[in-house]
């Protein structure tokens, strides 16, 4: 009966915690533990368009719901399609990875702040991906390459544990063959026959020539990788506000109700998952924050 409450006019809308039904139309095995699903909405259930770096909450019915980044091409969202790449690590991700073409899964979203690309126009892009971290970066790379003339140098550094763990190898190959894009892949554990780089991603990062004041950096991967790479870039003069990082915390709702995704002042489902380095660097320095 509080006045302010009475005056809030609320349009009818779907329940925030109820997923929309999507159908798996393509199930592609990427690596031994990772799968990319292409999803199409059912009649009338399409969610709003996504932006690079955003995520959805994916449900395996009766098992659970987890946050997963969108890995598809933002310029190809016809029929409301969603492309998402999932690594099997536990109950829900395993169930999603088992979802064959024709099966239904639940989707809520898209949520969160994605990669900011507009602020990088006319400058150089440096994309640093570790492991599954390449998935949320792929829409950004696609977006940039789709508007290639608006950017200076485009450099992608991707790290994986081994060749068997490397995500999107064909895609990486295709990008590497472009003359306007520099791609370096490094493996922690080289396979016989691997002729590329070996070792942590910090190696090629240190060797990449950058013009700090023209560069916008996009980082995603294990938190320790993000920290080391962002610190290295900041030390080389890239302004911290132009280093963007995508962070991971437990998320149970995606809409700011559950409180799980806090990192100090941030609710990462809202102000993240992509954050500016100047907003999080100090926080990640504190253990167990």
């Amino acid at each position: 009966m509080i006045q302010a409450m009475r005056e809030t006019a609320r349009p009818a809308r779907a329940e925030a915690m109820v997923p929309a039904a999507y159908t798996v139309v393509d199930h592609r095995r990427e690596t031994h533990d990772t799968v990319t699903l292409t999803l199409l909405p059912g009649r009338g259930t399409a969610l709003p368009r996504f932006r690079p770096g955003q995520f959805t909450m994916l449900s395996a019915e009766g098992i659970g719901e987890i946050p997963v980044s969108i890995s598809g091409d933002p310029d190809d969202q016809h029929d409301g399609r969603l492309v998402q790449t999932i690594r099997e690590v536990g109950a829900v991700s395993a169930a999603l990875c088992r979802s064959e073409a024709g099966s239904e899964i639940g989707v809520r979203g898209p949520y969160g702040h994605g990669w900011r690309l507009a602020s990088a126009l006319d400058g150089d892009l440096l994309v640093v991906a570790g492991g599954i971290g390449l998935a949320p970066l792929r829409p950004l790379i696609r977006s940039a390459l789709g508007r290639r003339e608006h950017f200076g140098d485009v450099t992608l550094l991707a790290g994986a544990r081994s060749y068997a763990d490397l995500l999107y190898p064909l895609q990486l190959d295709a990008w590497a063959r472009r003359r306007d894009t520099a791609v370096t892949v490094t493996l922690d554990r080289p396979d016989p026959g691997w002729t590329g780089r070996v070792g942590l991603i910090t190696g090629p990062l240190a060797e990449t020539a950058i013009v700090p004041e023209r560069t916008t950096a996009y980082l995603c991967g294990p938190e320790i990788m993000i920290k080391v790479c962002a610190d290295a870039l900041a030390a080389r003069g890239v302004p911290p506000e132009r280093i963007q990082v995508s962070l991971e915390r437990n998320m149970k709702c995606g809409v700011g109700w559950c409180g799980h995704c806090q990192l100090g002042p941030h609710l990462l489902c809202r102000s993240g998952p992509v954050c500016r380095w100047d907003a999080v660097a100090d926080l990640l320095d504190i253990e167990e924050l």
């Binding site: 915690m17 109820v18 449900s59 019915e61 009766g62 098992i63 659970g64 719901e65 149970k252 709702c253 109700w257 559950c258 409180g259 799980h260």
Partner: peptide, 21 residues
Amino acid sequence: CFCTTVEDATDLEGDNAERWQ
């Protein structure tokens, strides 16, 4: 204090999924 978790469950027959907060 408002924090919650979300739990999905099915009934014993496995036919009906429910979502609880």
